[in-house]
């Protein structure tokens, strides 16, 4: 089981992943930005984007996907999105129900997706790492 997940899955799975990855990401972004009219919003979009990232990790194995999405990249994304979220709150809501319609859902999506992906890595790479999960 461990040996299998190191090298990833078969060639068919890798090809299909490469083809459908863009669509999953696009769908997640669509759900994020249509959150004020229809069901969705930052959280749901974030979960779908997280699924895309988990898909990459499952299909390509641990080392390959960690080279693509290293700890530094993830940390950069999460911190930038969190600071953007704070900036959006600081500017205040301009008397509309959902306030700033671009910054807040986008940052929620990045935070939730990176967070869930980090959870997945931390609980899956358990026997080898001595990093705590966030």
């Amino acid at each position: 089981m461990n040996h299998q997940s190191e090298k990833g899955m078969t060639f068919i799975v890798k090809t299909v992943t490469k083809l459908t990855l863009g669509f999953i990401l696009l769908y997640g972004i669509y759900i994020t930005f249509n959150g004020h009219d229809a069901p969705g919003g930052g959280f749901a979009g974030g979960v779908i984007v997280a699924l895309a990232l988990v898909h990459v990790m499952l299909a390509f194995g641990k080392e390959a996907s960690l080279k693509l999405l290293s700890a530094r990249t993830l940390r950069l994304f999460m911190a930038t999105a969190a600071i953007l979220f704070l900036y959006g709150i600081f500017k205040g809501y301009p008397k509309a129900i959902f306030g700033n319609e671009f910054i807040l859902p986008l940052s929620e999506m990045i935070i939730v997706s990176v967070g869930l992906f980090v959870i997945f890595i931390a609980l899956v790479l358990v026997p080898k790492s001595d990093k705590r999960s966030e």
Binding site: R75, L76, M78, A79, T80, A82, I83, L86
Partner: peptide, 8 residues
């Protein structure tokens, strides 16, 4: 803000 910038 300090927490997030520290992560950055």
């Amino acid at each position: 803000g300090n927490a997030f910038v520290t992560v950055l």
